[in-house]
Simulated assay, not measured.
Amino acid sequence: MRRFSVFLVFFLLLGLASSKSAAANAVPRQVLFQMEDPRGDDRGPGTYVYPKGPVFDPRHGLYDLTTFRVEVDDSSYYFYFTFAEKLSNPWGAPEGFSHQRIALYIDSQPNQGRSETWREGAYVDFDPRHGWEYFIDVTGWHKGAVYYWNQRKTEPGRRQGLLFRRATDGKTVEAVIPREALDEHPETWYYYVLIGSQDPIGPDGWRPVLAKATEWQFGGGTDTNLDPNVLDVLAPAAGENSQSSQLGSYSVEKQRLAVVKPVHPEQPVSIKKYTWYDRLVLAVREKGNAILKKYPWNIYFPVYVAAILAFLILLLLIGFNLANWRRRRK
């Protein structure tokens, strides 16, 4: 009887240890920011037209950002960019998307950062009150990286631990960035989201916008390096900060680039802190839900009753043996 009880205690402790290990991964993802973008606005300042080539069919929606969302868990930040049309992959990028050129700039600290893009290509500037500290280059062919405002342009970006892929819904690009690559205060972040078209021979990988559309280039621009090569930005639908106002603020006469404004949560969200007990409760709840889903209560009711009785008997045996042990000690 004594050996049997020792084994029972051992397995109970083993179960607790397993639960503690599971608790480390039980923290649910927390949504830090989400914003909808107007549909049908992948026309830059409103004048741009798609290239004539069939690879750009249906010639609308491929670059039309509809939702931007940011999440976090214990290990990573998750950035989601959802588009109006399914993400086609005509050139076979391993990440699952070939058309979209996504540039995410984050302003995380006041009174520092850059107000120009990492390299010339998008042909926009940023609000000087909100210079960027992080640039997440979301692109295909293993070129995605994180760049920092205070590093030299000749230095490579961080690629270790990063993941870029097409999500299962077929319309969303997902960027997974380790938390140590960015700072721990997303409640201070302002976001610039720029959408263009990938072009391996374009300036910094951006497909140019010309005055007239060709088979491979967009039309509706000015044949200069002053009109943006940006087709969509995350912006409100109307007002002085609308997309057309921002991307249309360039001037050929004054040799001035368009200035883009960032977006920011109306109610900033800090990362939740979880105690060990919180994590254990979440782990047990997650495990319990998984068991109930696999073995429904209404079908396996006798099994659950037997398991509960066995557990109660286990507790009684442990209590009985502890009581005996204490009597012998006296």
Rank of each mutant, 00 (worst) to 15 (best):
T66E: 13
W141C: 06
T224S: 15
D199I: 01
P203A: 15
G221C: 09
L182G: 01
G161Y: 04
G248S: 08
R285V: 12
V176F: 05
F218D: 02
W189M: 05
D41S: 08
G248T: 07
T168G: 13
S76H: 09
H60N: 13
P268K: 09
D183M: 07
Q34T: 12
G239H: 12
L315F: 08
E155T: 11
A93N: 06
D183W: 02
Q246P: 03
R159S: 15
D41T: 08
T67D: 15
R29K: 14
L14V: 13
G239L: 10
F4T: 09
N89A: 11
G131Y: 00
A237D: 15
E133K: 06
T214V: 09
Y300A: 05
P186A: 13
P208A: 10
P296S: 03
Q100M: 08
A175K: 01
G219R: 03
D37E: 10
A258E: 01
V176T: 13
G219L: 05
R2K: 14
V284G: 00
G288V: 07
P51K: 02
A283F: 04
F79A: 00
V230A: 02
A175D: 02
P302C: 11
T139F: 04
Q217Y: 12
D183V: 01
V269G: 05
R329L: 09
F218M: 03
R3W: 13
I318P: 00
E36S: 10
Y123N: 07
Y191K: 09
A290G: 07
I291C: 02
A235L: 03
S249M: 05
E120I: 06
G113M: 05
G40A: 02
Q151R: 07
R179H: 08
W276D: 13
N111M: 11
G40L: 02
F320I: 14
V252G: 06
A84C: 14
V193K: 01
K20E: 12
V72C: 07
G219Q: 04
V263L: 10
A167E: 11
S75G: 08
R159V: 15
D74Y: 00
K273C: 10
S197F: 04
R43K: 14
S5R: 06
L104R: 05
A283M: 01
K86Q: 11
P296G: 03
S21R: 09
F83M: 05
P28F: 01
R2G: 10
S108Y: 00
G40C: 06
D125F: 06
H264K: 12
Q109A: 12
